[in-house]
């Protein structure tokens, strides 16, 4: 067997080992590579940035634990943004069918709220999971509290301050420098999807289409999306049709949002490994093609 044939037939485990090292080394020795912003991510950031304080925002954590490493960084960044803007944060999940998004949302919103000094039931609430996919979205549009009589922790929703529009400025009395103060936004009661000023659907499957078809088209809620990189290309038609305002795609999108929020989190740090591994894969593809064509050429010459 010639050297080219050997290169072509290299043991797959050698490739696996290099992949592992290509990911691990930049984590041990960070490269701190710069992050550039894209219009798609700005589309979500600007919408949240322009909301008046106290506006209700819905965040659908529609992903499984399998996608947590990719999507948690952006969920955290969005939550940080919402709390910084003193928005009323409501989280929910309609996907996956085992409802694991409910626990993910609960953990993340609790942790970020603790950092921001926000109170459960007053500044934020996690509604948890409901079965029925589109039926839940329609249910939220028609009769919010009938669909979610209780939150994830079993508290009766009707009694929560956050939904009844009596939300105050939390513990930070000073308003943000350029935030548009609006008493109306805080006084707004949440009885339907229509009452939310904005929503971000963070998904690893097609739940965004359910939110668009029923949430946006039927009840007019403005939607921004955050999704796994695998799902991102599928959201561009909806972006161009103005059914969504922006796309935060994968770890790259998360790194951009972190940059906008002026911190370097798991998204930005992950981009170092991402860069190395992408270059490695391109080299692999190039090498694979090169060896293949050399062998093909040899065959033709012999033939």
């Amino acid at each position: 067997m010639g050297i080219i044939q050997k290169v072509l037939n290299v043991d797959r485990r050698v490739i696996y080992l290099i992949v592992f090292l290509a990911v691990a080394i930049p984590i041990i020795f960070p490269l701190n590579l710069p992050v550039t912003l894209t219009e798609e991510v700005m589309g979500v950031y600007n919408e949240i940035e322009n909301l008046p304080e106290g506006s209700p925002i819905l965040i659908a954590v529609d992903y499984e634990p399998s996608s947590s490493p990719e999507l948690n960084p952006m969920t955290r960044a969005i939550l940080k943004h919402c709390f910084k803007k003193n928005l009323r944060v409501v989280t929910t999940t309609i996907w996956p069918t085992d409802g694991s998004g409910g626990s993910i949302a609960d953990k993340l919103v609790e942790e970020e709220a603790r950092i921001a000094g926000k109170i459960r039931g007053k500044d934020f609430v996690n509604l948890g999971f409901k079965t029925g996919s589109y039926a839940v979205v329609i249910g939220m549009g028609e009769d919010f509290k009938k669909t979610f009589p209780k939150d994830f922790n079993g508290n009766v929703l009707d009694k929560l301050e956050i939904l009844n529009g009596t939300h105050s400025n939390g513990n930070s009395e000073s308003s943000l420098p350029n935030a548009a103060f609006s008493q109306d936004a805080r006084a707004k009661k949440i009885n339907s999807l229509k009452d939310f000023s904005y929503m971000v659907c963070i998904h690893d499957d097609s739940s965004v289409f359910t939110w668009i078809t029923y949430g946006y088209e039927r009840y007019g809620i403005k939607i921004g999306t955050g999704c796994t990189a695998v799902m991102a290309p599928g959201n561009y038609p909806s972006l161009q049709a103005k059914q969504i305002t922006g796309i935060i795609g994968g770890l790259k999108g998360a790194s951009e949002y972190e940059k906008l929020m002026n911190y370097r989190g798991e998204g930005a740090r992950g981009m170092d490994s991402q860069s190395v591994i992408h270059v490695f894969i391109i080299i692999l593809i190039f090498l694979g093609n090169l060896t293949y064509f050399i062998l093909e050429r040899k065959k033709t010459v012999r033939g």
Binding site: F20, I27, I28, P69, G250, L251, G270, S273, H278
Partner: peptide
């Protein structure tokens, strides 16, 4: 073109999962 772009993003997505797990092991 769409499949190629999707492949590029699929690689990106799957690698981020490895990054998350390796980061957990290391940090």
């Amino acid at each position: 073109i769409f499949f190629g772009a999707s492949f590029g993003y699929t690689v990106m997505g799957r690698v981020s999962l490895v990054i998350g797990r390796v980061r957990f092991l290391i940090t």
